[in-house]
Computed example of a mutant assay.
Amino acid sequence: MSEAKWYVVHTYSGYENKVKANIDKTIENRHLEDQILEVRVPMQDVVEMKNGVQKATQKKMFPGYVLIHMIMNDDTWYVVRNTRGVTGFVGPGSKPVPLTDAEMAPLGIRQENIVVDFQEGDTVQVIAGAWADTVGVIQSMNIQKQSLTINVELFGRETPVEIGFAEVKKM
Rank of each mutant, 00 (worst) to 15 (best):
E3F: 12
E3H: 14
K5V: 12
W6H: 04
W6V: 02
V8W: 03
V8K: 10
H10V: 14
T11E: 04
Y15M: 06
N17P: 05
K20T: 00
H31Q: 13
Q35Y: 12
Q35I: 02
I36W: 10
E38L: 09
V39H: 07
R40P: 01
V41N: 12
V41T: 11
M49V: 13
N51S: 13
G52P: 10
V53I: 11
V53C: 04
Q54Y: 11
Q58M: 10
P63G: 12
Y65G: 01
Y65Q: 07
L67N: 11
I68D: 06
I68L: 04
H69Q: 13
M72N: 13
T76R: 06
Y78Q: 02
V79Q: 04
V80P: 11
R84Y: 07
R84P: 00
G85E: 04
T87W: 05
G88R: 07
F89G: 14
P96D: 00
P96S: 04
T100L: 08
D101R: 14
P106Q: 12
L107H: 10
G108M: 04
R110T: 07
E112L: 14
E112R: 07
I114K: 05
I114D: 02
E120L: 03
G121W: 11
T123E: 05
V126C: 07
I127G: 07
G129F: 01
A132T: 15
S140F: 06
S140N: 09
M141G: 08
Q144G: 00
K145M: 02
Q146W: 02
S147D: 14
I150C: 02
I150K: 00
E153H: 09
E153Y: 06
L154G: 00
R157A: 14
T159P: 03
T159V: 14
P160M: 06
E162A: 04
I163V: 07
I163A: 01
A166E: 11
E167Q: 15
K169D: 07
K170A: 01
M171L: 12
M171S: 03
